[in-house]
Design a protein around this nucleic acid. Structure first.
Length: 633
DNA sequence: ATAGGGTTAG
């Protein structure tokens, strides 16, 4: 409860009823105080003295004065003072209620905002459209569908449903809460559906994963501005349609709509998820040409793009160029270093950040603990994990516990890792269990592995990735029956294995491959190359680890299923379509399997290529028969 | 006399 946390204000706030000379109607005093407030807006220390002045002169109860004071307190991040002022004001009007609701929202106190609105309604202060939009904002951010519906009911009774802002917020609410039909209903009833309304509706469709419906709205629009185009790109990218997002960006340019920095952030996100380094470089150059300010958001997006596309050195160059680095800038870089297995560098950067007095947040620790895990830095990992609470006052969350399980598992301290999970009780998530299961698989610890497998089976939030992990675990022990059981259970639950998909960028185009893909125009040469490599790697001593293929097939079939994994097809295409010795960069949506990992090490050796593969978790830099992950991932 | 718009990563 926020109200009880209000610190004592140095002012005497016992003024309201006992003030001997109440001047609450004096227009001169009111004007005087308000102009004082507006004149000194830039001085963060100005509100309290002026507030004191207002009390002394007896004008503080004036609705206009109270309103302006409250707004200024909110702007200065003094939500406590704002709250106190509100409670010291007699009969606060709808303006005062609305600005405090807004204040709560901007501080993330959504429940307080919603409660205050309720208090207002119960106090018979008539809500107007401004108050309603304010509380709906809180409902949207809190995903409070029930409360939102209540507000909708109230609005309906009052005949405010045709108000533009309210209708828009309701469209957004229903979209964000996953009830798209209701969003459509609101949208269809809107008297005017301009760019903004259409943009909100598109956003709702995207939030519900209904890509084609969003595209439908977009296509119907008469005029489209930068924001609308940007949302389109962002929506496609958020729904995994990276190439379509990039196409949209090109189309936007053809249509002569200027991209802004938000557009570039979205486009860069598409590049980084595709691993499209060349395109990303081009976008980088282009945004400089467009005079887009490289603010912290753009800088972060660029660092992410370079590191996620495999060029960690360029990410570093960019990072060094950013003059004012904030926590997110550091986070991007630390995470990038961690992904590339540059553990020491990541930890050093974390230390540097502390030296520069930039306060780390929860995400910083995910990055730095990740680095410890990839580098096998157990002691350091523990130390940093403990420092979270004791030094930095940050309560570790599930992800951080997950990192610790990862760190312990990686070095084979499986009992301790399992202990960690047990101590978390029901809090342990499936990612954590999977990470430990993967460690058990690597260290061939059946005993703990089975226990973890049991927990994982009972886990409610288990997704297809976890099922696959579980099935792989059993398969690696040769327990085909269990493996098949898991798979059957997964299929019965209506879950489909996310198809493996790899991409490679050649001559500025992204080529995507599914497992066993036959769609590529160069398929003939690709498969010829694959056969050649199958032959050559077998000469080098490679034998397909058929255990990783899940199906209970015969050996030959298993070999076949393995040999057409998407990353191999992408690599083969890279080999036939680039100059000798060119570095190949491949992106894969799932974790790379043991067999492909072993195979690619040999391919790198035989072809004398550097091959960088980014899988779901991290980067693998293959070179001369070895991988930067030291065979642990 | 007091106020509200749609797009930004881990």
């Amino acid at each position: 409860m926020i109200i009880s946390a209000v610190p004592t204000i140095t002012l005497n706030l016992q003024y309201h009823s006992s003030n001997p000379h109440s001047n609450s109607n004096d227009p001169y005093l009111r004007k005087n105080v308000i102009s004082l407030l507006l004149k000194n807006r830039r001085n963060p220390k100005h509100v309290q003295p002026i507030h004191g002045h207002a009390i002394k002169t007896g004008i503080s109860q004036d609705p206009f004065v109270a309103f302006e004071l409250l707004r200024q307190y909110c702007k200065l991040n003094s939500i406590d003072h704002a709250t106190k002022l509100f409670h010291c004001t007699q009969n606060p009007n709808v303006y005062l209620y609305t600005s405090l609701i807004d204040g709560f929202v901007s501080f993330g106190f959504y429940t307080d905002a919603i409660n205050l609105f309720g208090q207002m309604v119960r106090g018979h202060v008539l809500a107007d459209s401004y108050a309603v939009t304010a509380v709906l904002k809180a409902c949207v951010l809190q995903r409070a569908l029930g409360r939102g519906r209540e507000v909708h009911g109230l609005v309906f009774k009052r005949g405010l449903c045709l108000d533009r802002s309210i209708a828009l917020k309701l469209v957004e609410l229903y979209g964000k809460c996953g009830v798209l039909e209701d969003a459509w209903k609101m949208f269809d009833e809107m008297p005017e559906r301009d760019v903004v309304a259409c943009t909100v509706m598109m956003g709702s469709c995207f939030d519900c994963g209904m890509v084609e419906e969003a595209v439908g709205v977009f296509n119907e629009m008469r005029s489209r501005d930068t924001v609308c185009w940007t949302l389109m790109i962002d929506g496609l990218v958020r729904n995994g349609e990276f190439n379509r997002g990039l196409e949209m960006f090109r189309e936007m340019q053809v249509k002569g709509v200027r991209p802004n920095e938000v557009t570039f952030v979205c486009v860069l996100s598409a590049c980084s998820q595709l691993g499209a380094l060349e395109l990303g470089r081009w976008i980088h150059a282009y945004l400089c040409k467009c005079d887009v300010k490289v603010n912290w958001f753009v800088a972060g997006a660029l660092i992410n793009m370079y590191s996620r596309c495999g060029d960690i050195d360029e990410a570093q160059v960019l990072f060094d160029e950013v003059k004012v680095k904030d926590v997110s800038t550091y986070n991007s870089m630390i995470r990038g270093l961690a992904m590339h297995g540059k553990s020491i560098e990541a930890v050093e950067l974390f230390r540097e950040m502390l030296m520069q007095r930039v306060r780390p947040n929860g995400i910083t620790f995910v990055g730095v603990l990740n680095a410890c895990s990839h580098g096998g830095l157990v002691v350091l990992g523990w130390e940093i994990f403990h420092s979270m609470k004791t030094v930095h006052g940050i309560e570790p969350e599930v992800e951080h516990y997950g990192c610790m399980v990862d760190i312990l598992g990686r070095v084979g301290r499986l009992e301790e890792a399992f202990d960690f999970i047990l101590r978390m009780g029901g809090q342990a998530d499936d990612k954590m269990l999977c990470s430990l299961l993967s460690a058990c698989k690597i260290y061939r610890n059946i005993e703990i592995g089975e226990k973890v497998a049991k927990l994982l089976t009972e886990h409610s939030g288990i997704d297809s990735g976890s099922f696959i992990m579980l099935s792989n675990f059993y398969a690696s022990l040769g327990r085909w029956n269990n493996a098949a059981e898991v798979r059957e259970k997964m299929e019965k639950g209506g879950m489909i294995k996310e198809p493996g998909c790899s991409s490679i960028e050649v001559n500025n185009a992204i080529h995507e491959f599914l497992s066993g893909d036959l769609r590529h125009p160069d398929r003939k040469r690709i498969y010829e190359k694959l056969e050649e490599l199958n032959y050559l790697t077998k000469l080098e001593g490679y034998s397909p680890a058929t255990e990783v293929a899940l199906h209970d097939l015969d050996v030959e079939q298993k070999e076949l299923a393995l040999s057409v994994h998407s990353e191999r097809l992408a690599i083969c295409y890279g080999l036939i379509s680039t100059q000798p010795f060119t570095k190949l960069r491949v992106g894969k949506n799932l974790r790379i399997c043991d067999d492909c990992h072993a195979m690619i090490k040999l391919i790198a050796k035989i072809t004398r290529r550097k091959i960088v593969v980014r899988d779901r978790n991290r980067f693998h830099h293959f070179e001369n028969g070895d991988c930067s992950c030291n065979d642990y991932w």
